[in-house]
Nucleic acid binder design. Sequence first.
RNA 1: GGCGGCGUAGCCAAGAGGUCAAGGCAGUGGUCUGCAAAACCAUUAUUCAUCGGUUCGACUCCGAUCGCCGCCUCCA
Length: 489
Amino acid sequence: MTIQIHNTLSGKKEALLPIEKGHVKLYVCGITSYDYCHIGHARSALAFDMIVRYLKYRGLRVTYVRNFTDIDDKIITRASEQQTTSEELANRFIREFYTDMDKLGIDRPDIEPKATEHIGEMIRLIEELIDQGKAYPSGNDVYYIVDSFPEYGKLSKRNIEDMQAGARITVNEQKHHPMDFVLWKGSKPGEPTWDSPWGPGRPGWHIECSAMSRKYLGKTFDIHGGGQDLIFPHHENEIAQSEGANHKPFVNYWIHHGFVTIRDEKMSKSLGNFLTIRDILDHYHPEILRFFIFSTHYRSPLDFSESAMQDATSGLERLYECVAAIDALPETSATDVPSVFSDEDIKHLNGAETRFQQAMDNDFNTAQAQGIFFDSVKALNRIRVKLPAIPRTSDLHLLKSSVDTLRNLANIMGLLREDAHQFLAANKSKLVSACDIDIDSIESLIAERYQCRQARNWTRSDEIRSQLLEKNIELMDGPEGTTWSVKSS
RNA sequence: GGCGGCGUAGCCAAGAGGUCAAGGCAGUGGUCUGCAAAACCAUUAUUCAUCGGUUCGACUCCGAUCGCCGCCUCCA
């Protein structure tokens, strides 16, 4: 069984066959660093984090490169607005990016090149293109000759004529052809500049990825990824530059993930529906965001809403409740009682990892994989409630090893990493802070109710129950005493 | 206008030419409980936007229609 990946280039799922056996080379377009990251950036980083973890779990070596665009028009504009330099602004938001990524528990890529540290490589690549007659200087700029690359449009499945018919291309007298795109921009006074054979200037956006991927991964590598909006023009232009200069296929598999929407609209600042990662992390545990993001396949659109996050919270808590309950069980016990496992339970639990792999092999279907987690939880809970007061030791072992497997698989999506008991307690205290009552009052009411219950004073006992319920606090009487939780509205 | 994608139960979301259309959330009935909650058991789409076609057989393939979304300008 091989891993199947949906390849944007072919529009089909294809078996992943790395160029170098057992070693996948992956390049992902990272952020342009001029503002705080939003939930869409989180989805991107999370999707590739999951993909890298899964590839590694499947025994592959991965070299993962993700760049920072730290020079570009937006950065220059924002820097001047804030009366700072592009460099300071870009570095500041790279630090903020790391803060967010760390909170989300995202592993660092192996190499994180910055555009400004690879100006030389870009200039060299542009020179190669000019030498081959595929680019031309014009004014202070250098442009790529789109007509020199007959396959232009093969990734985004469009052709030059159709796009011109769209007539949304800004007129630029410097260009010989309206579809030609800039490789090097001559700088205006006051802008950051680098010396080049064409005078002082800075690189165009697309050239950095061609130059940096070639440097770190070679002329042809396995996977290139990014958001769906990058297919055109960014990735199309990268192909034109790289294949134009190298005369070799640039990338074998293109992976593009879908957008995060809010009320079914793409996030944008102009619509005012822009949510930063830190906005969300103020209200939700990072694993809840991860659970939410992985509840939909990475290529589908994902609509953010409070109620969707509420569902994700409930779902993740269900997983953690199960883990916490089994963690609380003793390690060993009597050995001579009969097992409470049914053959079906055993089959279910033992087959979980295989079914997980089948789901994930199929273009990283995390939504389906999550369903398998719940199947395991259901089996685990079913067994747990059947456990006698003194259970069979081998039953305990089987429960605990199944939970280990569950944790191990969930970890690929960055889930179930926390101590289950602590996770639930932390979530509870976060929720209770939104309620009109504090933990001490809850505890003292529970103590009072305990006395009432001892005295079989059910009237007062129920009074306390409903009194707390009004504050959204739900009581649960168990054999070990009364516990409470915050009711999800 | 061009290109791409989507339309599956109250909501979210997998699946895929052929025994029962995953799973989650919500709901209902039951077990448990002094009463509850959680958990467990049972139950909730004769049907996969609509209409045609291919096929022994389609929700899954093809075509058309309707609706929604994205890209074509910076964008994850």
